[in-house]
Design a binder for these strands. Structure first.
Lengths: 226, 226
DNA sequence: GGACATATTTTTGTCAACAATAGTGACTGG
DNA sequence: CCAGTCACTATTGTTGACAAAAATATGTCC
């Protein structure tokens, strides 16, 4: 069965994934104009599937496209990045509340188990914020899917996170506050375990708000140029 | 200048618009499998641009696509429709708050002027809920763009509204409560005019919550089969 | 008579050639 | 020497043909 799923993996999907990761990882520089043929040769694709993938990426807001004038990776200003966090705040708050109401006991246990793993990762890789970033992504990913709200999960995982991750990679020391974030994660998980949706929502909103202010501060300090 | 913008209107865009309106208006029945060639002949397109548009629509969640097995319009269950309203509640609440902080005085005057127009439309077309639905869309559209939050507006206008409108058309008497909704709109507009973001957010959330409960009730009554 | 396997047909996925547009460069006129 | 216009080139948009995969239908075997 799983082979069948892999078998039905079309070239357009491949192009989509390649482009997406390339954009997120920063291999494709924002603002820079990129030609279709160049992309084809770089990812060993033909223009048909590529254009289909390009359409999808454009629809998701990861790149902008002017007819007959080429395509370029979207460049997000500092203000827009902060706006992204404002959206995350409300949407993930909702996700946390619904997750508290709807996640299975098994899922919750799993969630708390991953937090233990994250703690170990942080201790082992002192200061290596990369793991923390991945762990953070993992945590929020689980809550988004745990909300049992398909569209909400799609919007968070498919739209917002990729844009946020785009900047995570650029400023790998972004989060900066691994221990603090982990503690906040634990409290959120606990609220979910107690099926306290209201508290989970409140804590999640505060958590993301703190992350936003952290970035905001770094921008003002000039540490983080966007 | 405006001609140039129309001039750079590609076939893929045309396909996208055609498909989108067809889905929203219900010309393309949800769940029904549709072939590419059939779509081409129906909208006078070739398969290249069509496939590009199909990719975009899929990315927006308006249709699902299984490799080698065709494409069909997404069919949303009653629960999922209500979930959509839960998302709208939080996101439009944020939009209203930011709109209160950021809309220009001119935009606010415009917003209130449109509400007068809506009132006249409701009086003229007694019970013709269609106008109300359009007016409702117009109102929420203005607030979404007024938030000056590009991504938020994109997610609301590009993702959520089309799915909601899909059902508006199907159950044209959806809103059902034109006068009530107009009053709620007026209060929201007033809060925005007074630059009271907090109040605008509260009122907007309550407004959409009321709309959701209205639909919920109709579903339970069996008036509204999805 | 029913079920499984195979062959056919339809439909999707992919590719390469063609056409159109926009950006760029050179050339001419002031 | 600068500005405007014209032609050219390079890149994008489009089209139709080709290949592969899946669904269906038919035939045979149990």
């Amino acid at each position: 069965m799983s082979e069948a799923a892999i078998q039905t993996y079309t070239r357009a999907d491949e192009a989509f994934d390649c482009l997406q990761t390339a954009i997120v990882k920063g291999d494709l520089v924002p603002g820079e104009k990129i030609g279709e043929v160049e992309l084809c040769s770089r990812f060993n694709l033909t223009r048909g599937p590529l254009r289909e993938a390009l359409g999808r990426l454009e629809s998701r807001g990861l790149l902008v496209r002017r007819p007959h004038a080429g395509v370029k990776v979207v460049s997000v200003s500092a203000e827009e990045l902060l706006e992204l966090y404002r959206i995350r705040e409300t949407m993930e708050g909702l996700a946390a509340r619904q997750a508290a109401e709807r996640m299975t006991d098994h899922e919750i246990a799993d969630l708390q188990a991953t937090l233990d793993t994250h703690e170990k990762m942080i201790e082992q890789a002192q200061g290596q914020a990369y793991y923390q970033a991945e762990g953070d992504y993992d945590f929020h990913h689980r809550i988004a899917t745990g909300s049992r709200n398909a569209k909400l999960a799609q919007m968070l995982l498919g739209d917002l996170y990729y844009m946020v991750r785009m900047y995570r990679y650029r400023l790998s020391t972004s989060s900066g506050r691994p221990h603090l974030a982990l503690g906040e994660h634990r409290r959120i998980a606990e609220a979910i375990a107690q099926r306290d949706g209201e508290l989970a929502e409140f804590l999640m909103k505060r958590h993301i708000n703190a992350a936003r202010r952290n970035i905001e501060q770094k921008i003002q300090e000039g540490v983080l140029t966007i």
